[in-house]
Amino acid sequence: MAPVSAMLPRWRLYSWSNNLMSSGTTLYLKGAEFQYPDNEKKVLKGIDLEIRAGEWIALLGPNGSGKSTLLKLFNALLLPSQGCCFIDGINTNETKSVALIRSKVSIVFQNPEDQIVASVVEEDTAFGPENLGLRSDEIKIRVKEALISVGLWEKRKHAVSSLSGGQKQRLALAGVFAIRPGSLLLDEAMSMLDPASRKSFLDLIKREHSSGCTIVQVTHRLDEILNSDRTVVITDGQISWQGKTENFLSISENELKDMGFAKPPVAVLKEELVKSGIIPGSTRSDIGEIRKKLCLLQ
């Protein structure tokens, strides 16, 4: 697997030219509730949430708190049973806009096996654009861009079954990139990957975000959210904490543990060093930045 950095200059040539300049979508929930038809218990109980274009939101919460359901509201896979959901100002319950909404908001699920449709790499990547009814040469361009950006262009004719887990998840990402959405929803998309694949996947998300895409990321692991702007914690169908990610990470280790989260070691280190005045309080919880600050001091 080629390192992502090695692919960057080439990728730039195929940058998302017109689309990404128009940047990310805004996602908006107003008093959203959700309840499955045959179940009395409400999964979501009145969520108000506004996500600005280009923002990176980390959506946290224990298993079964309703995070995944919330994501499905954003691309009209589910409709709120009360309240409403708007994507770039379009209400998701307008049936005729569903296609438009889904071309603006894409989702990557946990298990790559569940979302790859075709047996050959490039055919799967083309699935989304094919459904959009694009011209054949446009589809080919998008497929090429998407596969180059995730580092699978060389494997475009390969069988999906010959890919590793990490490669499969990057293929799932390519399938979504080819739709050129303005926002990307990640439903524990990295939880089945090993650390190396996770890192290269996260690098791809960072790049998407830096080119203007809105990111909503559901995860259990706080070491994956270090790059996010805002953290939203959902407990039992309600927002129980919300604020800047840096503020969330500076909650004490024990308190976080009570909330059900492991404080990332990097955040612990930063806090300890800030406490004793070795690095400035403005340092982000990022190993690269801590390293830089320490070097400057020496």
Partner: peptide
């Protein structure tokens, strides 16, 4: 989620 709506409007690469 990947915009599939059956065969209607679907094309091939």
């Amino acid at each position: 989620a990947r915009c599939y709506r059956g065969g209607k409007g679907r094309v091939r690469m």
